[in-house]
């Protein structure tokens, strides 16, 4: 479990966790919460924009750019990869490709969320021990 956690952290947060310190003991959670709050709005916007006919690719791209920006900031690599693909489809004006990729984006996004929730729950349980272990 510890190892799993460590792996998860590495893949998910990259540098993020290093920022968590005494001044901001819940920094990671804070940021992730921020991310999900903000990105939910973006996901909605993108969904709406995709339904429009004709699709406004410029708008779509700008939403996705934002989404990609914050995703990459928290180290959500898989989400980011899908976002990049999405933007590529935007660029060439491939609406179907966008839609398909967006499903993929949402899937990764949901997976990440689950993982994160598990992580936070676990972190809370482990508490100080986990913290000590984090410092190595």
């Amino acid at each position: 479990m510890q190892r799993q956690l460590a792996n998860m952290k590495q893949s998910l947060f990259d540098q993020l966790e290093e920022l968590q310190d005494d001044a901001n003991p819940n920094f990671v959670e804070e940021v992730v919460t921020l991310y999900y709050r903000d990105s939910a709005r973006l996901v909605q916007n993108i969904d709406k924009a995709l339904e429009k006919n004709p699709v406004d690719f410029v708008k779509l791209d700008s939403y996705m750019h934002q989404f990609k920006g914050s995703s990459s900031s928290i180290g959500a690599k898989k989400v980011k990869i899908e976002c990049t693909q999405f933007r590529e489809y935007c660029r060439v004006g491939n609406g179907e490709g966008c839609k398909k990729t967006f499903q993929q984006v949402k899937r990764e996004y949901a997976t990440l969320r689950k993982k994160l929730e598990a992580y936070f729950q676990f972190a809370r349980q482990v508490g100080p021990v986990e913290k000590a272990c984090r410092r190595k």
């Binding site: 920022l19 901001n24 940021v31 921020l34 991310y35 903000d38 920006g69 914050s70 900031s73 928290i74």
Partner: peptide
């Protein structure tokens, strides 16, 4: 930055 997530992370990093 209009992105709250980025902004928060950057802020923290810069403070560090």
């Amino acid at each position: 930055d209009d992105d709250p997530t980025c902004l928060r992370i950057l802020e923290k990093m810069l403070r560090n």
